[in-house]
C-alpha cells in the first residue's frame, strides 16, 4: 500500500492481492483464544444500536412509499387486496436488505474507514503493534464480526418497521385494520422468503465491515488519507453489496426459493 502503482490494470491486481492478504490475516486472527469480547460488545453497540434510528426511519419510509406508489396500479387491476402481500414480499426479500445494507455502508463502513484511518495517521495502530498487542484482533476482528451480526439484525428490524410503514401508507386512502393487513402480509410469506434474505445480509455485513477495516487500516499517513479511506470504503462496500445481491439472486433462483 505504501507504493503507488500507475498502471491501472496492475493497480487492480495489486488491490485484489492486498485484500486477499488482509482477508488471510483476518481469518488467522479470528481463531485465537484471546478474543476481545469487551471491544466486540462495544462495537455491536456502536454499529447496531447507534445505527438503529437511521435504519428504523429508512425501513418505515420504504414500506410507506412502496405502498403509496403501488396502490394506484394495484387498484387499476382490481388487486388492492394483494397490496399487503406484495409489500411484505418485496420488502423482506429484496428492498429492505439492499437499502439497509447501502445505508449501513454509508454510515458504518465510512465510520470504520475514518476511525481506523485516523488511528493509522496518529500512529495508534503502530502503538498497538509495538506494544505486543494484536491490532488485527482488537480492531479488525471485532468490527467485522459486529457487522456480520448487527447488519442482519438491523435488516430484520427494518423489515418489521417497513411493514408498519406499509400499514400506515395504505390507511391514508383506505380503512384497513391492522389484523387484516398483517394477516394478509404474513399469509403470503414463506420461510423461503426470509431465509435467503437473512443469509445475504450476513454477507452484506461482512462486506461492510471488511471493506471499512481494509480501507482504514491501510490508509496512508496524512490527514487527507482519512477522508479518502472513508470515501473509498463507502464506494467499495456499496459496489460489493450490489455484486453480492446479484449473485444471491442467481443462487436463490437456482435453489428454487
Amino acid at each position: 500500500m505504501s507504493e503507488t502503482t500507475t498502471n491501472p490494470i496492475t493497480a487492480i491486481f495489486e488491490e485484489a492481492g492486498n485484500q486477499a492478504i488482509f482477508m488471510g490475516r483476518f481469518l488467522k486472527s479470528i481463531f485465537r483464544l484471546d478474543f476481545e469480547w469487551e471491544e466486540f460488545i462495544r462495537q455491536c453497540y456502536m454499529i447496531g444500536y447507534k445505527s438503529f434510528p437511521l435504519v428504523a426511519i429508512t425501513g418505515f419510509v420504504v414500506g410507506f412509499v412502496i405502498t403509496l406508489q403501488s396502490e394506484p396500479t394495484m387498484k387499476e387491476f382490481g388487486a388492492e387486496s394483494f397490496i399487503p402481500s406484495m409489500v411484505a414480499i418485496s420488502i423482506i426479500r429484496e428492498i429492505c436488505p439492499v437499502v439497509i445494507a447501502l445505508i449501513c455502508s454509508g454510515k458504518i463502513a465510512s465510520g470504520i474507514g475514518a476511525e481506523l484511518g485516523s488511528m493509522q495517521v496518529t500512529e495508534q495502530i503502530d502503538a498497538m503493534d509495538v506494544s505486543g498487542a494484536n491490532p488485527m484482533q482488537f480492531l479488525v476482528v471485532t468490527r467485522i464480526l459486529a457487522c456480520i451480526i448487527m447488519v442482519p439484525l438491523l435488516t430484520i428490524m427494518a423489515d418489521a418497521i417497513g411493514l408498519v410503514g406499509g400499514f400506515g401508507g395504505i390507511n391514508l386512502s383506505q380503512d384497513v385494520s391492522a389484523t387484516l393487513f398483517f394477516n394478509k402480509a404474513f399469509q403470503a410469506l414463506k420461510f423461503g422468503d426470509l431465509l435467503p434474505a437473512v443469509i445475504k445480509t450476513i454477507f452484506f455485513g461482512f462486506a461492510i465491515g471488511f471493506i471499512g477495516c481494509y480501507k482504514g487500516y491501510n490508509s496512508n499517513r496524512g490527514t487527507e488519507s482519512v477522508g479518502i479511506a472513508a470515501n473509498s470504503a463507502v464506494v467499495s462496500a456499496s459496489l460489493w453489496i450490489i455484486v453480492i445481491d446479484a449473485i444471491a439472486a442467481q443462487i436463490t433462483i437456482a435453489l428454487g426459493y
Binding site: M119, D126, A127, M128, V130, S131, G132
Partner: peptide, 18 residues
Amino acid sequence: KELRKRIGFLFQSSALYD
C-alpha cells in the same frame, strides 16, 4: 510480539488511543 514486550516506544504524536 514477545520481543516487543521488552521494548517501549514513545511515538512523536504520543499515539494515545483516543
